[in-house]
């Protein structure tokens, strides 16, 4: 759509989801091209669409860039210690089972330092929605490699490229017992939002991995350029396969441009939720 100088735009003082953000905390700390803002927006949009009272939503984060998400959403929100967002959130969800508790945190926070809590929260089917923002590295501390960094990708602690096999997070979540498992990217913003909404409607442990660019750290170290460039990669290489049956095929290799990245809603089953 072309926009001419004559076009008259309707003006609005407030965005429809402004009230779900802590406007008094803006501007945020996130870098240009970072994907976390879109995650926060998608979460706020899902709250608005959930039809549940805003006061019934709670957001819990760990540490890192993604861990700052809780600080920008205008619901009861808790920015906890590194790796402990899940057990903190479990305490809330068990004491007040009617609250809709969403954990938004990073791949390092949830799967490295918090990895034990992740598998046990999934195993016991804690009534939590988890949005795991995967930017393939530790962004806030300056781009160290982590348990999601693809083999060969570089980081400040693996200057010649990491040799460790990364987690396949949907496989991990499914194997440990999650009742809803999805993977999207911040390019697939509508599908991602709908997945969050679905997780809010479900009882039990719902896990959404969302790929997000970190141009400042991961992008720069791996010749991906700006955030838009990584969005290009998502657009060219993502393949939607809902209900994917072979979870071993869900490995991500962001560096090999011949390999596709499978996204979609993979698991949506019912199992009795923990103490809810």
């Amino acid at each position: 759509m072309s926009v001419t100088e004559q076009t008259v735009h309707p003006t609005a003082d407030v965005h429809p989801i402004d009230h779900l953000l802590r406007a008094d905390r803006l501007p945020h700390i996130l870098c240009p091209g970072c994907g976390i803002g879109i995650v926060i927006h998608s979460y706020a949009q899902a709250i608005a669409e959930s039809g549940m009272p805003e006061n019934d939503h709670v957001c819990v984060s760990g540490i890192g860039c993604s861990g700052r998400a809780a600080g920008y959403v205008n619901v009861d929100s808790y920015h906890t210690t590194h790796g402990r967002a899940l057990p903190f959130a479990l305490g809330i969800a068990v004491h007040k089972p009617d609250l809709n508790v969403t954990v938004i945190s990073g791949d390092g926070d949830l799967t490295a330092i918090g990895g034990n809590h992740l598998i046990h929260a999934a195993r016991r089917n804690a009534n939590l929605n988890v949005i795991c923002i995967n930017n393939f590295n530790y962004g806030m501390t300056g781009g160290q490699v982590g348990p999601t960094t693809p083999i060969g990708a570089r980081g400040s602690t693996a200057p010649r490229g990491t040799t460790e096999r990364p987690f396949n997070l949907p496989y991990l979540a499914k194997a440990t017992g999650a009742v809803f498992v999805a993977r999207w990217t911040i390019l697939h913003v509508r599908e991602f939002q709908q997945a969050i909404l679905r997780s809010m409607q479900k009882k039990g442990f719902c896990f959404i991995e969302v790929l997000a660019p970190c141009p400042t750290s991961f992008g720069r170290a791996n010749k991906i350029g700006d955030g838009l460039h990584e969005m290009e990669i998502y657009r060219e290489r993502c393949r939607i396969e809902h209900g994917a049956s072979n979870f071993e095929d869900l490995d991500i290799d962001l560096i090999d441009d011949k390999k596709s990245i499978t996204v979609g809603n993979f698991v949506d089953i019912e199992r009795e939720a923990f103490l809810s």
Partner: peptide
């Protein structure tokens, strides 16, 4: 009340803080 046997003490401590944040 609610009793939860956690996966470790890191989780136990975080969980009781979370529950207390919800009023417990």
């Amino acid at each position: 009340g609610r009793f939860v046997q956690m996966e470790d003490e890191l989780g136990s401590m975080a969980a009781i803080i979370g529950a207390s944040a919800a009023g417990a």
